[in-house]
């Protein structure tokens, strides 16, 4: 078994997964994962299909709790204090601090405005001005405001795929999350929309920590500060992105990066 090797220790760990194991029923899907997400940095998870990238991502906001038969072991410590995986912690509390953007844009069949306002409504925000301000700020941060400001009451489905994905990002941003999880956010988008979303993520890095799962190694290389390579449920190597892509320690990582498998 290969050990996880961290060459450079990040200065401010925002989230720290320690000895994380995850089971779908009897399937041992994640094996002893140790991963640090540095504060206000982009960490990319790469690896071949079925290696557990998405499974790992979905541990960070306890999405696995929605389906029965799933079991976590180990810890994911947020801000050095709260264990996300603690059974005593309500997953709703986790999801109020950790946002998520999915593989396919999944806006609600509601207006553009209501989509972005939803997180605030869930939190019981009633003040119309506060909601309107936060919606505008989130849409600006998601680089969508200029395109939709005149039609906030239109249905979200009238937007193009790329706009819908940025709307989903705005929806996640509106509640000021500390960490946003991106699950292959551009796999359903064309190259131009992909470039827009990537630009956006690079800018978002200033305000929020980002964990992204991606199939595209070019995307990981372009976007991320840190890259983790996963294989068969294990975290094989985790380091600064330039190290992973130029001089990985592990042979499997090297083979995957150079396109020899996966």
């Amino acid at each position: 078994m290969l050990e996880t090797i961290l060459q450079t220790t990040p200065l401010h760990p925002k989230v720290e997964a320690a000895n994380l194991n995850f089971y779908y029923g009897n399937t041992h899907a994640l094996k002893n994962i140790n991963l640090i997400l540095p504060d206000k940095q982009i960490t990319a998870l790469i690896g071949p299909s079925g290696c557990g990238k998405t499974t790992l991502l979905r541990c960070f906001n306890r999405m696995h709790d929605l389906y029965s038969g799933n079991r976590y072991e180990g810890e994911i410590i947020l801000d050095g204090s709260v264990n996300i995986l603690s059974r005593r912690l309500d997953p709703i509390e986790v999801r109020m601090r950790v946002g998520m953007v999915f593989q396919r844009p999944n806006p609600f069949p509601k207006s553009i405005f209501e989509n972005v306002a939803y997180g605030l409504r869930v939190r019981g925000e009633k003040n119309r001005t506060t909601i309107a301000d936060k919606v505008e700020k989130a849409l600006r941060d998601a680089a969508l405001w200029d395109e939709v400001k005149d039609r906030l009451q239109d249905m979200a489905f009238n937007l193009s795929g790329g706009q819908q994905q940025r709307l989903c990002i705005a929806r996640a941003l509106a509640t000021d999350p500390e960490l946003i999880l991106f699950d292959e956010p551009t796999s359903a988008l064309d190259p131009i929309a992909t470039a827009n979303v990537e630009d956006l993520m690079t800018q978002l890095k200033q305000q929020v920590t980002i964990l992204i799962v991606t199939h595209s190694m070019q995307q990981a290389a372009r976007l991320s500060d840190y890259t983790a390579f996963m294989y068969l449920g294990e975290l094989v190597e985790h380091d600064r992105t330039e190290v992973i892509f130029n001089d990985p320690l592990n042979k499997q990582t090297r083979d995957y990066i150079s396109g020899r498998f996966g």
Partner: peptide
């Protein structure tokens, strides 16, 4: 589709909020 349920839950909605709002 489950994607809509997950979208609501990911925003921090409770089960009842997910049912009543969506």
């Amino acid at each position: 589709p489950n994607a809509l349920r997950e979208a609501a839950y990911a925003m921090g909605a409770s089960k009842w909020q997910m049912i009543a709002h969506h």
